[in-house]
Write a protein that binds this DNA or RNA. Structure first.
Lengths: 229, 229
DNA sequence: AAACATTTGTCCGTATGTATA
DNA sequence: ATATACATACGGACAAATGTT
């Protein structure tokens, strides 16, 4: 029996990849706090790999905007403040809206069924009071649309932006209480617009669905209510 | 006399930065052709640095979408085909349009004068038959607006997209004959909309000014008229 | 199938640069 | 101003993985 060589369960993940995703997780969930100094020798001890993959991971994190490397001096987790939310959301919304536009003529019935399934699950998790899980389903909903849009430039950028948004929620909200049931309704409207193939409508609804939480978040945050070096 | 330590002329550029910008240049101008295999030892010889900064540069180029690293196997310059132009422009236009919207209430009279100056120069270069120089001025025009929008997420993404577009032009057009005089007019209309602070109009005009060249380019290219491995 | 050649991935020592006493 | 401590940047050697003969 022929076994495919790179069957996903057996893909070997490199030390660099491990370091990258671990550091990313730590920065997003606040284990590594904004402004914290990162020393590669310490990180390499902590993660059990040498300094090289750590450094490579840090370079990538710098490009993604999660750390700042002061040439020859030091490396720190990027700071973040309340008003940053106003900078992150608009470009994210613009590309999500574009993704919706591009997806409108492309989306299959099967994929629409999938969106419905995700939205039902999303609603259920909100009812059950599982906001973290619900957030993940919301992300899944949006990512499926990006996938349908089939544009690697959009997907790579939105994936990074989504991580920044997630970090923001983790840092500023003790309990992620985003996206109330109104989002479920918006999703349903969006799905209906996909079904009737109204691109202008999907664009508008998508923009709304992304931007509304921005204002809710912004107003629910007291200034300086967050940990920082 | 006190000499500022980091006066720009004396800033030391790291080996990684040099390698990155050189490789980027080579990929954009077609010295390194699509699909070409990149061996880090060869590159380190060619650039006179060790493998470490080369590898770091390649990681960044991978994120930017200029090379593909096949884990443990090989690294190649990304391929590109005629239809890619249809994927690159829309997200670029979406963010440029957003930048215009954000810049509209922020732009100063001085910055508007600057746009006019750039557009005049741009027009002059087109008349003189200097399309490369003209392209640079066009980029300057758009970059100034992005700068005014003051959003690092937008600027980092658009900067990468602009490089992809430039690469596209270098690979597919023997003589960059982009942006005829119609673009000068569009810029002038855009400037007028900035002056009257009409955000909806600047958005629309910006989108048009970015997307029109896409179609012109697309139709001026015969299929498979480009070098590739 | 197995040894080889090639290239990438990782480790770690050292040089360089920066900040502090 | 000089020396010292510290962290990063770079280099070169070794290990692991892949493809080939």
């Amino acid at each position: 029996m022929p076994i495919p060589k790179d069957f996903s369960a057996f893909i070997k993940i490199s030390a660099k990849e491990r370091a990258l995703s671990q550091l990313q997780r730590w920065i997003i969930d606040g284990t590594l706090i904004p402004g914290e100094k990162l020393v590669d020798t310490e990180l390499s001890d902590a993660l059990g790999v040498s300094r090289t993959p750590i450094r490579e991971a840090l370079q990538i994190l710098e490009i993604q905007g999660f750390v700042e490397i002061y040439h020859g001096k030091e490396t720190r987790v990027t700071k973040i403040e309340k008003d940053d939310i106003l900078k992150i959301y608009p470009p994210f919304a613009a590309l999500q809206s574009l993704a919706a536009e591009l997806a409108t003529p492309m989306i299959s019935n099967e994929q629409i069924e999938n969106l419905k399934r995700i939205n039902t699950e999303f609603s259920l998790l909100l009812d059950r009071g599982q906001p973290y899980k619900a957030m993940e389903l919301d992300e899944e909903f949006h990512n499926l649309i990006v996938e349908v849009a089939d544009n690697s430039y959009i997907s790579s950028f939105t994936s990074t932006m989504q991580k920044h948004i997630r970090r923001f929620k983790y840092l500023f909200l003790k309990h992620v209480r985003t996206t109330e049931q109104i989002s479920v309704t918006e999703h349903a409207e969006l799905i209906a617009a996909f079904e009737s193939r109204e691109a202008a409508k999907t664009m508008m609804l998508m923009k709304q669905n992304v931007m509304r939480p921005m204002w809710e978040l912004y107003e629910s945050i007291e200034t300086n209510s967050f940990r920082q070096e």
